[in-house]
Design a protein around this nucleic acid. Structure first.
Length: 120
RNA sequence: CGAGUAGGCCGGACGGUCGCGGGCGCGGGCGCCGAAAGGUUGCGCCCGAGGAAAGUCCGGGCUCCGCAGGGCGAGGCGCUGGGUAAUGCCCAGCGGGGGCAACCCCAGGGAAAGUGCCACAGAAACGGACCGCCGGCGGGAAGCAAGGGUCGUUGCAGAGGGACGCCUCUAAUUGGUGGAGGGGACCGCUUACAGCCCUGGCUUCCCGUUUUGACCGGCAAGGGUGAAAAGGUGGUGCAAGAGACCACCGGCGGUCGGGCGACCGGCCGGCCGGGCAAACCCCGCCUGGAGAAAGACCAAAUAGGAGGGGGAUGACGCUGCCCGCUGAUUCCCUCGGGUAUGGUCGCUCGAAGCGUCGGGCAACCGGCGCUCCAGAUAGAUGACCGUCCACGACAGAACCCGGCUUACAGGCCUACUCAACCC
RNA sequence: GCGCCCGUAGCUCAGCCCGGACAGAGCCGCAGACUUCGGAUCUGAGGGUCGCAGGUUCAAAUCCUGCCGGGCGCG
């Protein structure tokens, strides 16, 4: 799980990303991206279509862990919302991490590449 | 060793690196976010989902409704005694049912308070009489008509269909067995007349010699129907019968004894009474409403507005109705706006857990000692690596407890029963 | 966190309250008739664990209890 300062906390913030942001889909996930003045925040949405509480927690934790590992590479002033699609049911960590990386790359939010590979 | 019954326990383990939520301690406030309230850091130590956290089916605590009131209604529960904060839960027993047994199952009050229902069949579904049996009213044989029953998933008959390596005739053939007629097991349809049995009647004959009608009276055993038929079985008895009487059994009433009680046992009386209350109902007991988005506090207030209607002749609320209580910048509807206005508390120490001693058959209760064991708020348990095994099921707290129900890979322990064999 | 409703033929529904013996209707599909063929029409047959499991009752789609699945509403 991300630190609290890097989480989206209000329903209003999610609605803002949905309304003003762009959407990208790939594999088991869908990503909404919008900008902000400062800070980096991300949220994860897993609906009941995925399964029971245990399975939903499992999917959300895998996504959070993948995002946490890549967060230093994300540009400042970014709002992210990941939505799990039905294919995410029962996915492994490596699969989720690859999907998160591809979506972030496609969205063009990995601005701090020049920092180097010590970012993780 | 095998088959089984009951109860209880565990729910992958260990180590390392990175990461998340909370508590405590120590650096110190600045800075930062915010309109404000308030929030936000680093290091160290400790803690961090379940037996069902689930379903939300019961019962409570807690909070608010001024109190938690009375009556009606509605709902729930229903053998007895106990346990408990309380229960529809648990324990011990009683009664009934099942199992060779250990043991298991049961919404298990009232059917002489009343109403209702019991299809079809049957005379009749609760105070009944169809066929019958007996008496009044002798017996036998033959015939005739009648009533009832049965045969009957049948026979005879009728029209139809019809297997067939069947029969006859015809001689039809474009590389292929035709056409016509007959026989025919069998199949369903129609017919319900006949046959057989029982009952009484009429006629004739014979014996006998008071009266005669498908009548009157008595009876409820038997037949038959049904899930169920008016206590059961056997006997006595009688015109035929019957708890009319007798024995045993079952039920009911009384009484005596045992038990706190449900109930059990003995004796006496006497035979009276179908089932359904998870049908209405009667009796007894229980239940005020809303729910953590409960509720309290802080900050900001153009985050509140417009129109219509009701309201001190009592709105709204406590409650579905009445009484009683409360007592108003309020309540209801429509339109447009907004999308929990922001934050802190409530928030985890509790009918708590573990150990031990004592009481109790047990559920459980009491004493003493020790322990602190999630508390998030878009919501904390994850990723990677290594080792081991039986290769990991069902499944995630959201105010808190006690139960019930449901889901579940695999494993362990204890007690008991039955059967076979060995000593 | 509360409250309510529904599961019956392939589909849409009756029947349930007040239990009774073949569980019905329409549509679709199938077969036959009509037609040169098809449509329409007519005729016929088939198709059901009444969501699941227990219980009450002589008897359960119907009554009771517990589950499963689906849907709706309130704050």
């Amino acid at each position: 799980m991300l630190r609290r300062e890097h989480r989206l906390s209000k329903g209003r913030e999610y609605a803002e990303v949905y309304r003003a942001g762009r959407a990208y889909s790939g594999g088991p996930l869908r990503l909404y991206v919008s900008g902000a003045e400062r800070g980096k925040k991300a949220g994860v949405v897993v609906s009941k279509k995925i399964g029971g509480a245990v399975e939903r927690n499992r999917v959300r934790r895998l996504i959070s862990e993948a995002v946490r590992a890549m967060l230093p590479e994300v540009a400042d002033g970014t709002r992210l919302v990941f939505v799990a699609r039905p294919a995410a049911r029962g996915a492994g960590f490596s699969e989720v991490r690859r999907a998160v990386g591809e979506l972030l790359d496609e969205a063009g939010v990995l601005a701090c590449r020049e920092v180097g590979d010590d970012g993780r």
